[in-house]
């Protein structure tokens, strides 16, 4: 089973987590955001074959939402960290 590195709990089985997709920066809601920008944020994905940044939620663990960098073909994690921490 894939082992996911939680920044809080360390390496845990993927079955404890919920994968929440590729990270996309959200346009600030108070800005004047065009329909195109919202649609791009909501729907478009780079869907990279290689290392990308993604959201994970440690549902059956500490409850943390965090970001991880993972290679999408080998599934090897590069690192994981809290949002804003890089």
């Amino acid at each position: 089973m894939l082992v996911v590195p939680c920044p809080n709990c360390g390496p845990r089985n993927a079955s404890e987590f919920r994968y929440a997709g590729e990270y996309r920066p959200r346009p600030h809601p108070s800005q004047d955001v065009t329909d195109d920008e919202w649609a791009t944020y909501l729907y478009t994905r780079s869907n990279t074959l290689g290392v990308h940044t993604e959201w994970w939620f440690h549902t059956s663990g500490c409850g943390l939402w965090f970001l991880a960098e993972r290679h999408t073909k080998t599934n090897a994690f590069v690192k994981s960290y809290l949002w804003g921490a890089t």
Partner: peptide, 18 residues
């Protein structure tokens, strides 16, 4: 499944996730 990789070669991002 590889649709995004070809689209990227044409400079496009698509609303799909593999």
């Amino acid at each position: 499944g590889w649709g995004s990789t070809i689209a990227a070669m044409a400079g496009l991002e698509l609303p799909i996730a593999t």
